[in-house]
Amino acid sequence: MTLTSLDLKAVGPRIRMMMPHLTPLEAKVVETVFGRRGFDETIPLKQIAEEAGVSEAMVVKIAKKLGFSGYRDFRTAVYEYSRLPTAEMHQELSVDDSSAEIVQKVFRTSIQALEETLAILDMDDFDRAADLLYRAKNRDFYGVGGSAQIARDVSHKFLRIGIRASVYDDSHMMLMSASLLGADDIAVGFSHSGNTSAVIDAIHLARKSGARTLAITNYDNSPLAAIADIVLCSTAQGSPLMGENAAARIAQLNILDALFVAVAQRDYQAAERNLGRTMSAVTSKRRDKGGS
C-alpha cells in the first residue's frame, strides 16, 4: 500500500477492513495510533511501541500486515489520511449530546461512509456486476435481518424496470434456491460482516451449481468475500451506540442504486417502457392531493 497508488480516502477504510484479522494486541496498536491526538510524521517508532505496550518489531510487523512497507510508510499514510476533511467527520455519540449534535454526528458519519466507499469502489467489478445482473436468467438475493431489507429494496427497484429478482431470507429457502441455479444465473449475498453462515452456505452452493456470485459486504477479506466471484464493499466506522451497520447500510444502498441505474442503462428503452407500465399499474392505489 503506497500513497502513490491509493487514494488517501481509502487508507482508513482499508485498515478498518483488516481489523477483524488482527489479534487483540495488534488491534490495540492500531487503535493507539488512530486514537492519538497530534499524530504526525515526527512520531518515532519507539514512542508508539511504548504507548501501546509492545516491541518496536511488533509495530513494524503490524504495519506490514496492514499492507504497508514498514512503520514510516504506515505513519505517513495515517497522517495524510487524518488531515482529510472526511476523516474528521466521524464523532462518537454521547448520552449527553443535544438533538442538534446527534443529527450532526449521524449525518456526518453517513457522509464519511459515502465518501470513503466511493474511494474504495472497484469500477471494473462494478461494471462486471452490472453486466451479470442485466444478462442473468435468474437473480437470487440472499440476506438475513437488515441485509434482507437491503436486498428487498434493490429487488423492488429492479422490478420497476422489468428485471425480476427473488429475495430469500430463510436458510433452507436459500439453499433450495442455490441448488437450482446454473451458468446463466447470478446469486447475490448481502452480509455486512461477511460472516453470516446462511448467506455464505447459499453462495457457496450457488457457485458449486455453476452460477456467478456477487457479495455486498463491509469487509473484503471476509469469508463471504473469499468465495464470491465479485465483491462490492461498503465501509463505515463503528459506533458503540449505533454500531457500524447504520452508516454502512446507507453506503450499500447507494452502491445498489448505482447498480440499478447501470443495469437500466444497458437497455434504456426497455427500462423506460417497463417503468411506465409498473408506475401505471399502481397509480390507482395512490391518493390525490385532495384525498383524505
Rank of each mutant, 00 (worst) to 15 (best):
D153A: 15
D153T: 14
D153Y: 08
H156P: 01
L159T: 11
R160G: 09
I163K: 15
I163W: 02
R164P: 00
R164V: 06
S166F: 00
S166K: 12
V167T: 06
Y168Q: 11
D169T: 09
H172D: 10
M173R: 05
M174N: 08
M176W: 01
A178I: 05
L180H: 06
L180M: 15
G182A: 14
D185S: 12
I186C: 04
V188R: 06
V188G: 05
G189M: 09
G189I: 04
F190Q: 13
F190C: 14
H192V: 08
G194Q: 07
S197F: 00
V199L: 05
I200Y: 01
D201E: 15
D201N: 14
D201T: 10
A202G: 07
I203L: 13
H204E: 13
H204Y: 01
L205Y: 00
A206I: 04
R207C: 05
R207M: 04
S209F: 01
R212T: 08
R212W: 02
T213N: 05
A215I: 05
A215V: 04
N221V: 06
S222D: 02
P223F: 00
L224H: 07
L224V: 08
A226S: 08
I227N: 06
I230Q: 12
L232F: 02
L232M: 09
L232S: 11
L232C: 09
S234C: 11
T235G: 11
A236R: 10
P240Q: 07
L241N: 09
G243A: 05
N245L: 06
A248P: 10
R249Y: 00
I250V: 15
N254C: 11
N254K: 08
D257R: 09
D257S: 08
A258K: 08
A258M: 13
F260M: 15
V263P: 03
A264P: 10
D267H: 10
D267N: 15
Y268A: 14
Q269T: 07
Q269A: 13
A270D: 04
A270S: 11
A271G: 08
E272F: 01
N274I: 03
